[in-house]
Design a protein around this nucleic acid. Sequence first.
DNA 1: TCAAAAGTGTTGTGCGTACACCCATGT
DNA 2: ACATGGGTGTACGCACAACACTTTTGA
Lengths: 230, 230
Amino acid sequence: MELEQNIKIAVDAIVFGYSENSLNVLLIKQKYGVLKNQWALVGGFIKDNETIINAVNRELKEETGIKVNYLEQLYTFGDDLDRDPRFRVISVAYFALVNSTKLILKADSDAEDAKWFSFAELPKLAFDHDIILKTAHQRLQNKLTYQPIGFDLLPKEFLFSELENLYCTILDKEIDRRNFRKKILSFGIVEETEKFGNKKNGRPAKLFKFNKLKYNKLTKEGFLFDINFA
Amino acid sequence: MELEQNIKIAVDAIVFGYSENSLNVLLIKQKYGVLKNQWALVGGFIKDNETIINAVNRELKEETGIKVNYLEQLYTFGDDLDRDPRFRVISVAYFALVNSTKLILKADSDAEDAKWFSFAELPKLAFDHDIILKTAHQRLQNKLTYQPIGFDLLPKEFLFSELENLYCTILDKEIDRRNFRKKILSFGIVEETEKFGNKKNGRPAKLFKFNKLKYNKLTKEGFLFDINFA
DNA sequence: TCAAAAGTGTTGTGCGTACACCCATGT
DNA sequence: ACATGGGTGTACGCACAACACTTTTGA
Protein backbone atom coordinates (compact mmCIF):
# COMPACT_ATOMS: atom_id res chain seq x y z
CA MET A 1 0.00 0.00 0.00
CA GLU A 2 1.40 3.37 -0.95
CA LEU A 3 0.76 5.89 1.78
CA GLU A 4 2.07 9.41 1.77
CA GLN A 5 0.65 11.40 4.60
CA ASN A 6 1.74 14.92 5.47
CA ILE A 7 0.02 15.46 8.75
CA LYS A 8 1.95 16.12 11.94
CA ILE A 9 0.83 14.90 15.33
CA ALA A 10 1.26 16.98 18.44
CA VAL A 11 0.17 16.93 22.04
CA ASP A 12 -1.10 19.81 24.13
CA ALA A 13 -1.62 19.93 27.85
CA ILE A 14 -4.12 22.06 29.69
CA VAL A 15 -2.69 22.44 33.16
CA PHE A 16 -5.10 23.66 35.80
CA GLY A 17 -4.04 24.96 39.18
CA TYR A 18 -5.95 26.48 42.03
CA SER A 19 -4.86 29.00 44.58
CA GLU A 20 -6.50 31.72 46.61
CA ASN A 21 -10.00 31.14 45.29
CA SER A 22 -8.87 31.29 41.71
CA LEU A 23 -8.72 28.67 39.01
CA ASN A 24 -5.52 29.09 37.05
CA VAL A 25 -4.12 27.84 33.77
CA LEU A 26 -0.50 27.37 32.86
CA LEU A 27 0.53 29.00 29.59
CA ILE A 28 3.83 29.47 27.82
CA LYS A 29 4.98 32.24 25.56
CA GLN A 30 6.03 31.06 22.12
CA LYS A 31 9.68 31.70 21.44
CA TYR A 32 9.90 31.02 17.73
CA GLY A 33 7.95 31.21 14.53
CA VAL A 34 4.99 33.09 13.21
CA LEU A 35 3.33 32.96 16.60
CA LYS A 36 6.30 34.33 18.50
CA ASN A 37 5.30 36.06 21.73
CA GLN A 38 1.79 34.67 21.73
CA TRP A 39 0.63 32.65 24.72
CA ALA A 40 -0.16 28.99 24.18
CA LEU A 41 -0.74 25.72 25.97
CA VAL A 42 2.17 23.49 26.86
CA GLY A 43 2.74 21.19 23.93
CA GLY A 44 4.87 19.85 21.12
CA PHE A 45 5.27 17.14 18.55
CA ILE A 46 5.28 13.44 19.28
CA LYS A 47 8.50 11.63 18.55
CA ASP A 48 8.52 8.55 16.36
CA ASN A 49 9.29 6.12 19.15
CA GLU A 50 7.40 7.73 21.95
CA THR A 51 3.96 6.97 23.30
CA ILE A 52 1.45 9.80 23.33
CA ILE A 53 1.37 9.99 27.10
CA ASN A 54 5.17 10.08 27.26
CA ALA A 55 5.18 12.95 24.83
CA VAL A 56 2.89 14.90 27.15
CA ASN A 57 5.01 14.15 30.19
CA ARG A 58 8.18 15.08 28.34
CA GLU A 59 6.75 18.40 27.21
CA LEU A 60 5.50 19.17 30.68
CA LYS A 61 8.92 18.46 32.09
CA GLU A 62 10.83 20.31 29.39
CA GLU A 63 8.67 23.38 29.25
CA THR A 64 7.61 23.84 32.83
CA GLY A 65 9.35 21.40 35.14
CA ILE A 66 6.16 20.69 37.07
CA LYS A 67 4.79 17.42 38.37
CA VAL A 68 1.10 16.87 37.79
CA ASN A 69 -1.30 15.09 40.15
CA TYR A 70 -3.74 14.04 37.51
CA LEU A 71 -3.55 13.55 33.76
CA GLU A 72 -6.09 12.28 31.30
CA GLN A 73 -6.69 12.46 27.60
CA LEU A 74 -9.20 15.16 26.74
CA TYR A 75 -9.91 15.26 23.02
CA THR A 76 -8.16 15.20 19.68
CA PHE A 77 -8.36 18.39 17.68
CA GLY A 78 -7.91 18.27 13.96
CA ASP A 79 -11.12 19.28 12.24
CA ASP A 80 -9.82 22.75 11.52
CA LEU A 81 -7.29 22.18 8.75
CA ASP A 82 -5.65 25.53 9.42
CA ARG A 83 -5.51 25.44 13.19
CA ASP A 84 -1.74 25.66 12.86
CA PRO A 85 -0.68 28.27 10.29
CA ARG A 86 2.53 26.39 9.44
CA PHE A 87 1.17 23.03 8.28
CA ARG A 88 -1.50 20.50 9.00
CA VAL A 89 -1.38 19.45 12.65
CA ILE A 90 -3.62 17.14 14.61
CA SER A 91 -3.27 17.58 18.33
CA VAL A 92 -4.13 15.18 21.11
CA ALA A 93 -5.03 17.35 24.08
CA TYR A 94 -4.52 16.27 27.68
CA PHE A 95 -6.01 17.63 30.81
CA ALA A 96 -3.82 18.01 33.90
CA LEU A 97 -4.28 19.07 37.51
CA VAL A 98 -1.62 20.33 39.88
CA ASN A 99 -1.65 22.00 43.24
CA SER A 100 -0.08 25.20 42.16
CA THR A 101 0.67 26.76 45.49
CA LYS A 102 4.38 26.15 45.42
CA LEU A 103 5.26 25.44 41.83
CA ILE A 104 8.60 26.36 40.42
CA LEU A 105 8.23 27.15 36.79
CA LYS A 106 11.18 26.95 34.51
CA ALA A 107 11.45 28.64 31.17
CA ASP A 108 13.17 26.36 28.74
CA SER A 109 14.23 25.78 25.17
CA ASP A 110 10.85 25.86 23.48
CA ALA A 111 9.25 28.49 25.64
CA GLU A 112 10.44 31.92 26.49
CA ASP A 113 8.30 32.13 29.54
CA ALA A 114 5.88 30.00 31.52
CA LYS A 115 3.23 31.69 33.62
CA TRP A 116 0.01 31.09 35.52
CA PHE A 117 -3.08 32.94 34.34
CA SER A 118 -6.41 33.18 36.05
CA PHE A 119 -8.97 31.28 34.01
CA ALA A 120 -11.20 34.32 34.36
CA GLU A 121 -8.66 36.63 32.72
CA LEU A 122 -6.96 34.82 29.89
CA PRO A 123 -4.84 36.53 27.26
CA LYS A 124 -5.33 35.99 23.55
CA LEU A 125 -4.13 32.49 22.72
CA ALA A 126 -2.25 31.02 19.80
CA PHE A 127 -3.77 28.39 17.45
CA ASP A 128 -7.21 27.15 18.50
CA HIS A 129 -6.12 26.95 22.10
CA ASP A 130 -9.06 29.01 23.31
CA ILE A 131 -11.40 26.29 22.06
CA ILE A 132 -9.29 23.56 23.63
CA LEU A 133 -9.29 25.43 26.91
CA LYS A 134 -13.04 25.82 26.88
CA THR A 135 -13.43 22.08 26.28
CA ALA A 136 -11.07 21.36 29.14
CA HIS A 137 -12.97 23.64 31.48
CA GLN A 138 -16.22 21.85 30.70
CA ARG A 139 -14.56 18.53 31.38
CA LEU A 140 -13.26 19.84 34.67
CA GLN A 141 -16.71 21.02 35.71
CA ASN A 142 -18.28 17.69 34.81
CA LYS A 143 -15.66 15.49 36.37
CA LEU A 144 -15.66 17.46 39.60
CA THR A 145 -19.15 16.18 40.31
CA TYR A 146 -18.49 12.50 39.83
CA GLN A 147 -14.81 12.02 40.58
CA PRO A 148 -12.83 13.36 43.52
CA ILE A 149 -10.38 15.26 41.35
CA GLY A 150 -10.83 18.48 43.31
CA PHE A 151 -8.31 17.15 45.81
CA ASP A 152 -5.67 17.07 43.08
CA LEU A 153 -5.92 20.84 42.91
CA LEU A 154 -5.31 21.29 46.64
CA PRO A 155 -2.30 20.69 48.88
CA LYS A 156 -2.21 17.37 50.72
CA GLU A 157 -3.71 19.04 53.75
CA PHE A 158 -6.38 21.61 53.21
CA LEU A 159 -9.14 23.51 54.94
CA PHE A 160 -12.74 22.54 54.38
CA SER A 161 -13.41 26.10 53.33
CA GLU A 162 -10.78 25.78 50.63
CA LEU A 163 -12.43 22.65 49.23
CA GLU A 164 -15.79 24.33 49.35
CA ASN A 165 -14.51 27.44 47.62
CA LEU A 166 -12.88 25.32 44.96
CA TYR A 167 -16.23 23.76 44.14
CA CYS A 168 -17.98 27.13 44.21
CA THR A 169 -15.39 28.72 41.96
CA ILE A 170 -15.11 25.97 39.38
CA LEU A 171 -18.79 25.14 39.20
CA ASP A 172 -19.75 28.80 39.47
CA LYS A 173 -22.44 28.04 42.01
CA GLU A 174 -23.28 28.88 45.57
CA ILE A 175 -23.06 25.92 47.87
CA ASP A 176 -24.54 25.52 51.34
CA ARG A 177 -21.63 25.03 53.71
CA ARG A 178 -23.50 22.66 56.05
CA ASN A 179 -24.83 20.41 53.32
CA PHE A 180 -21.51 20.34 51.54
CA ARG A 181 -19.59 19.32 54.63
CA LYS A 182 -22.17 16.72 55.57
CA LYS A 183 -22.07 15.18 52.10
CA ILE A 184 -18.30 15.08 51.78
CA LEU A 185 -17.80 13.67 55.27
CA SER A 186 -20.50 11.05 54.70
CA PHE A 187 -18.32 9.45 52.02
CA GLY A 188 -15.65 8.74 54.60
CA ILE A 189 -12.83 9.55 52.22
CA VAL A 190 -11.77 12.82 53.85
CA GLU A 191 -10.09 12.72 57.21
CA GLU A 192 -9.54 15.25 59.92
CA THR A 193 -5.96 15.89 61.01
CA GLU A 194 -4.78 17.31 64.33
CA LYS A 195 -3.37 20.39 62.67
CA PHE A 196 -4.87 23.77 62.11
CA GLY A 197 -4.50 25.97 59.08
CA ASN A 198 -3.60 29.61 59.32
CA LYS A 199 -5.96 32.24 58.16
CA LYS A 200 -5.57 35.88 59.09
CA ASN A 201 -9.03 36.33 60.49
CA GLY A 202 -11.57 34.32 62.36
CA ARG A 203 -11.64 31.05 64.18
CA PRO A 204 -8.83 28.65 63.30
CA ALA A 205 -9.87 25.77 61.06
CA LYS A 206 -8.81 22.15 61.09
CA LEU A 207 -6.80 20.73 58.24
CA PHE A 208 -8.22 17.74 56.40
CA LYS A 209 -6.74 15.22 54.03
CA PHE A 210 -8.09 13.06 51.26
CA ASN A 211 -7.70 9.33 51.81
CA LYS A 212 -7.04 8.09 48.29
CA LEU A 213 -6.47 4.49 49.35
CA LYS A 214 -9.86 4.35 50.97
CA TYR A 215 -11.45 5.93 47.93
CA ASN A 216 -9.88 3.33 45.66
CA LYS A 217 -11.03 0.55 47.94
CA LEU A 218 -14.59 1.86 48.07
CA THR A 219 -14.62 2.34 44.30
CA LYS A 220 -13.84 -1.33 43.82
CA GLU A 221 -16.80 -2.15 46.02
CA GLY A 222 -19.08 -0.11 43.81
CA PHE A 223 -19.03 3.21 45.63
CA LEU A 224 -19.83 6.22 43.45
CA PHE A 225 -18.56 9.67 44.31
CA ASP A 226 -21.20 12.21 43.48
CA ILE A 227 -21.61 15.84 44.41
CA ASN A 228 -24.64 17.57 43.01
CA PHE A 229 -26.12 20.74 44.35
CA ALA A 230 -29.04 22.79 43.18
CA MET B 1 12.30 24.06 12.65
CA GLU B 2 13.27 20.71 11.21
CA LEU B 3 10.58 18.15 11.80
CA GLU B 4 10.63 14.65 10.45
CA GLN B 5 7.84 12.59 11.83
CA ASN B 6 7.02 9.07 10.67
CA ILE B 7 3.76 8.45 12.37
CA LYS B 8 0.59 7.75 10.41
CA ILE B 9 -2.82 8.91 11.56
CA ALA B 10 -5.88 6.80 11.09
CA VAL B 11 -9.48 6.77 12.18
CA ASP B 12 -11.54 3.84 13.39
CA ALA B 13 -15.26 3.66 13.91
CA ILE B 14 -17.07 1.47 16.38
CA VAL B 15 -20.53 1.07 14.92
CA PHE B 16 -23.16 -0.23 17.31
CA GLY B 17 -26.51 -1.54 16.22
CA TYR B 18 -29.37 -3.15 18.06
CA SER B 19 -31.89 -5.66 16.94
CA GLU B 20 -33.92 -8.42 18.51
CA ASN B 21 -32.58 -7.92 22.02
CA SER B 22 -29.00 -8.00 20.90
CA LEU B 23 -26.31 -5.34 20.81
CA ASN B 24 -24.35 -5.68 17.60
CA VAL B 25 -21.08 -4.38 16.25
CA LEU B 26 -20.16 -3.82 12.64
CA LEU B 27 -16.87 -5.40 11.57
CA ILE B 28 -15.10 -5.78 8.28
CA LYS B 29 -12.80 -8.51 7.08
CA GLN B 30 -9.38 -7.27 6.06
CA LYS B 31 -8.69 -7.81 2.39
CA TYR B 32 -4.98 -7.10 2.19
CA GLY B 33 -1.78 -7.26 4.15
CA VAL B 34 -0.45 -9.19 7.09
CA LEU B 35 -3.84 -9.11 8.72
CA LYS B 36 -5.71 -10.47 5.72
CA ASN B 37 -8.93 -12.27 6.69
CA GLN B 38 -8.94 -10.92 10.22
CA TRP B 39 -11.97 -8.97 11.42
CA ALA B 40 -11.47 -5.32 12.29
CA LEU B 41 -13.30 -2.08 12.93
CA VAL B 42 -14.22 0.18 10.07
CA GLY B 43 -11.33 2.55 9.53
CA GLY B 44 -8.55 3.96 7.44
CA PHE B 45 -6.01 6.71 7.09
CA ILE B 46 -6.81 10.39 7.14
CA LYS B 47 -6.10 12.27 3.94
CA ASP B 48 -3.96 15.37 3.97
CA ASN B 49 -6.79 17.76 3.24
CA GLU B 50 -9.54 16.10 5.11
CA THR B 51 -10.92 16.77 8.57
CA ILE B 52 -10.91 13.90 11.03
CA ILE B 53 -14.66 13.64 11.09
CA ASN B 54 -14.83 13.63 7.32
CA ALA B 55 -12.34 10.79 7.23
CA VAL B 56 -14.63 8.78 9.49
CA ASN B 57 -17.68 9.51 7.39
CA ARG B 58 -15.82 8.67 4.21
CA GLU B 59 -14.63 5.33 5.56
CA LEU B 60 -18.10 4.50 6.80
CA LYS B 61 -19.51 5.24 3.38
CA GLU B 62 -16.78 3.48 1.45
CA GLU B 63 -16.60 0.37 3.55
CA THR B 64 -20.18 -0.15 4.61
CA GLY B 65 -22.52 2.32 2.91
CA ILE B 66 -24.47 2.94 6.11
CA LYS B 67 -25.81 6.18 7.53
CA VAL B 68 -25.22 6.65 11.24
CA ASN B 69 -27.62 8.35 13.66
CA TYR B 70 -24.99 9.39 16.14
CA LEU B 71 -21.27 9.92 15.94
CA GLU B 72 -18.83 11.18 18.52
CA GLN B 73 -15.13 11.05 19.13
CA LEU B 74 -14.22 8.30 21.59
CA TYR B 75 -10.51 8.26 22.31
CA THR B 76 -7.17 8.40 20.56
CA PHE B 77 -5.14 5.23 20.71
CA GLY B 78 -1.41 5.42 20.26
CA ASP B 79 0.34 4.38 23.45
CA ASP B 80 1.11 0.96 22.09
CA LEU B 81 3.87 1.60 19.56
CA ASP B 82 3.27 -1.73 17.86
CA ARG B 83 -0.51 -1.70 17.72
CA ASP B 84 -0.18 -1.85 13.95
CA PRO B 85 2.42 -4.41 12.82
CA ARG B 86 3.24 -2.46 9.65
CA PHE B 87 4.34 0.89 11.09
CA ARG B 88 3.56 3.36 13.81
CA VAL B 89 -0.08 4.37 13.70
CA ILE B 90 -2.07 6.60 15.97
CA SER B 91 -5.78 6.11 15.62
CA VAL B 92 -8.60 8.46 16.52
CA ALA B 93 -11.54 6.24 17.38
CA TYR B 94 -15.15 7.27 16.90
CA PHE B 95 -18.26 5.84 18.34
CA ALA B 96 -21.33 5.47 16.13
CA LEU B 97 -24.92 4.36 16.56
CA VAL B 98 -27.29 3.12 13.88
CA ASN B 99 -30.61 1.40 13.88
CA SER B 100 -29.51 -1.76 12.25
CA THR B 101 -32.82 -3.32 11.47
CA LYS B 102 -32.73 -2.65 7.78
CA LEU B 103 -29.15 -1.89 6.91
CA ILE B 104 -27.73 -2.77 3.57
CA LEU B 105 -24.08 -3.49 3.93
CA LYS B 106 -21.81 -3.22 0.98
CA ALA B 107 -18.44 -4.82 0.68
CA ASP B 108 -16.03 -2.47 -0.95
CA SER B 109 -12.46 -1.89 -2.04
CA ASP B 110 -10.77 -2.00 1.35
CA ALA B 111 -12.91 -4.66 2.90
CA GLU B 112 -13.70 -8.09 1.62
CA ASP B 113 -16.77 -8.37 3.75
CA ALA B 114 -18.80 -6.32 6.21
CA LYS B 115 -20.87 -8.07 8.82
CA TRP B 116 -22.79 -7.56 12.05
CA PHE B 117 -21.58 -9.45 15.10
CA SER B 118 -23.30 -9.78 18.41
CA PHE B 119 -21.29 -7.91 21.04
CA ALA B 120 -21.61 -11.01 23.19
CA GLU B 121 -19.93 -13.23 20.61
CA LEU B 122 -17.12 -11.36 18.95
CA PRO B 123 -14.46 -12.99 16.81
CA LYS B 124 -10.76 -12.39 17.31
CA LEU B 125 -9.99 -8.87 16.18
CA ALA B 126 -7.06 -7.33 14.34
CA PHE B 127 -4.75 -4.71 15.91
CA ASP B 128 -5.83 -3.52 19.37
CA HIS B 129 -9.43 -3.37 18.27
CA ASP B 130 -10.60 -5.49 21.18
CA ILE B 131 -9.39 -2.80 23.57
CA ILE B 132 -11.00 -0.06 21.53
CA LEU B 133 -14.25 -1.97 21.47
CA LYS B 134 -14.22 -2.44 25.23
CA THR B 135 -13.68 1.30 25.69
CA ALA B 136 -16.54 2.04 23.32
CA HIS B 137 -18.85 -0.30 25.19
CA GLN B 138 -18.08 1.41 28.47
CA ARG B 139 -18.82 4.77 26.89
CA LEU B 140 -22.09 3.45 25.54
CA GLN B 141 -23.11 2.18 28.96
CA ASN B 142 -22.26 5.48 30.62
CA LYS B 143 -23.84 7.72 28.01
CA LEU B 144 -27.02 5.72 27.98
CA THR B 145 -27.75 6.90 31.50
CA TYR B 146 -27.33 10.61 30.92
CA GLN B 147 -28.06 11.16 27.24
CA PRO B 148 -31.00 9.83 25.23
CA ILE B 149 -28.80 8.00 22.75
CA GLY B 150 -30.73 4.76 23.12
CA PHE B 151 -33.24 6.10 20.63
CA ASP B 152 -30.52 6.27 17.99
CA LEU B 153 -30.32 2.49 18.15
CA LEU B 154 -34.02 2.02 17.53
CA PRO B 155 -36.25 2.67 14.53
CA LYS B 156 -38.14 5.98 14.52
CA GLU B 157 -41.14 4.27 15.99
CA PHE B 158 -40.59 1.65 18.60
CA LEU B 159 -42.30 -0.32 21.31
CA PHE B 160 -41.75 0.56 24.93
CA SER B 161 -40.67 -2.99 25.53
CA GLU B 162 -37.97 -2.61 22.90
CA LEU B 163 -36.62 0.49 24.62
CA GLU B 164 -36.73 -1.25 27.96
CA ASN B 165 -34.97 -4.33 26.60
CA LEU B 166 -32.32 -2.15 25.02
CA TYR B 167 -31.53 -0.64 28.42
CA CYS B 168 -31.57 -4.05 30.09
CA THR B 169 -29.31 -5.56 27.47
CA ILE B 170 -26.74 -2.79 27.26
CA LEU B 171 -26.58 -2.03 30.96
CA ASP B 172 -26.82 -5.71 31.82
CA LYS B 173 -29.38 -5.04 34.53
CA GLU B 174 -32.92 -5.94 35.31
CA ILE B 175 -35.26 -2.99 35.18
CA ASP B 176 -38.72 -2.66 36.66
CA ARG B 177 -41.10 -2.11 33.76
CA ARG B 178 -43.46 0.21 35.63
CA ASN B 179 -40.73 2.43 37.03
CA PHE B 180 -38.94 2.58 33.73
CA ARG B 181 -42.03 3.64 31.83
CA LYS B 182 -42.99 6.19 34.47
CA LYS B 183 -39.53 7.74 34.40
CA ILE B 184 -39.21 7.93 30.64
CA LEU B 185 -42.70 9.33 30.18
CA SER B 186 -42.17 11.89 32.94
CA PHE B 187 -39.50 13.56 30.80
CA GLY B 188 -42.09 14.31 28.15
CA ILE B 189 -39.70 13.57 25.30
CA VAL B 190 -41.30 10.32 24.17
CA GLU B 191 -44.67 10.44 22.49
CA GLU B 192 -47.35 7.90 21.88
CA THR B 193 -48.43 7.33 18.29
CA GLU B 194 -51.73 5.95 17.10
CA LYS B 195 -50.07 2.92 15.60
CA PHE B 196 -49.49 -0.49 17.03
CA GLY B 197 -46.46 -2.67 16.58
CA ASN B 198 -46.71 -6.29 15.60
CA LYS B 199 -45.53 -8.95 17.90
CA LYS B 200 -46.43 -12.56 17.41
CA ASN B 201 -47.87 -13.12 20.82
CA GLY B 202 -49.79 -11.21 23.43
CA ARG B 203 -51.60 -7.94 23.56
CA PRO B 204 -50.66 -5.47 20.80
CA ALA B 205 -48.42 -2.65 21.96
CA LYS B 206 -48.46 1.01 21.00
CA LEU B 207 -45.61 2.47 19.02
CA PHE B 208 -43.80 5.46 20.50
CA LYS B 209 -41.45 8.01 19.08
CA PHE B 210 -38.70 10.17 20.49
CA ASN B 211 -39.27 13.92 20.17
CA LYS B 212 -35.76 15.19 19.56
CA LEU B 213 -36.85 18.79 19.07
CA LYS B 214 -38.48 18.85 22.46
CA TYR B 215 -35.44 17.26 24.01
CA ASN B 216 -33.17 19.91 22.50
CA LYS B 217 -35.48 22.65 23.72
CA LEU B 218 -35.62 21.26 27.24
CA THR B 219 -31.85 20.81 27.27
CA LYS B 220 -31.39 24.51 26.58
CA GLU B 221 -33.61 25.24 29.56
CA GLY B 222 -31.38 23.16 31.80
CA PHE B 223 -33.18 19.82 31.67
CA LEU B 224 -31.01 16.82 32.38
CA PHE B 225 -31.82 13.40 31.04
CA ASP B 226 -30.98 10.80 33.63
CA ILE B 227 -31.87 7.13 33.94
CA ASN B 228 -30.44 5.35 36.93
CA PHE B 229 -31.75 2.16 38.34
CA ALA B 230 -30.59 0.06 41.24
C1' DT C 1 -16.22 44.12 72.03
C1' DC C 2 -16.20 43.67 67.34
C1' DA C 3 -15.22 41.55 62.98
C1' DA C 4 -14.37 37.45 60.51
C1' DA C 5 -14.56 32.85 59.48
C1' DA C 6 -15.57 27.97 61.50
C1' DG C 7 -18.59 24.81 63.05
C1' DT C 8 -23.03 22.53 63.78
C1' DG C 9 -28.91 20.00 63.45
C1' DT C 10 -33.53 19.72 62.19
C1' DT C 11 -37.41 19.42 59.29
C1' DG C 12 -39.99 18.86 55.07
C1' DT C 13 -40.62 16.92 50.67
C1' DG C 14 -39.92 14.89 46.34
C1' DC C 15 -38.02 11.01 44.05
C1' DG C 16 -36.58 6.38 43.62
C1' DT C 17 -37.87 1.76 44.84
C1' DA C 18 -40.46 -2.16 45.63
C1' DC C 19 -44.18 -4.69 44.47
C1' DA C 20 -48.87 -7.68 41.79
C1' DC C 21 -52.80 -7.78 39.20
C1' DC C 22 -55.78 -7.08 35.07
C1' DC C 23 -55.99 -6.51 29.81
C1' DA C 24 -55.94 -7.58 24.84
C1' DT C 25 -54.81 -10.59 21.47
C1' DG C 26 -53.81 -15.21 18.79
C1' DT C 27 -54.11 -20.08 18.91
C1' DA D 1 -59.53 -21.20 27.90
C1' DC D 2 -54.86 -20.57 27.85
C1' DA D 3 -50.49 -18.56 26.85
C1' DT D 4 -48.08 -14.44 25.92
C1' DG D 5 -46.65 -10.03 26.45
C1' DG D 6 -48.82 -5.07 27.46
C1' DG D 7 -50.34 -1.84 30.61
C1' DT D 8 -51.11 0.30 35.15
C1' DG D 9 -51.00 2.54 40.92
C1' DT D 10 -49.54 2.87 45.64
C1' DA D 11 -46.99 3.10 49.84
C1' DC D 12 -42.56 3.62 52.10
C1' DG D 13 -38.14 5.48 53.07
C1' DC D 14 -34.19 8.05 52.12
C1' DA D 15 -31.48 11.62 50.54
C1' DC D 16 -31.36 16.31 49.22
C1' DA D 17 -32.68 21.16 50.14
C1' DA D 18 -33.62 24.88 52.96
C1' DC D 19 -32.49 27.30 56.78
C1' DA D 20 -29.68 30.47 61.50
C1' DC D 21 -27.27 30.59 65.47
C1' DT D 22 -23.08 29.72 68.36
C1' DT D 23 -17.93 29.40 68.75
C1' DT D 24 -13.23 30.78 68.42
C1' DT D 25 -9.81 33.66 67.40
C1' DG D 26 -7.15 38.31 66.37
C1' DA D 27 -7.32 43.11 66.29
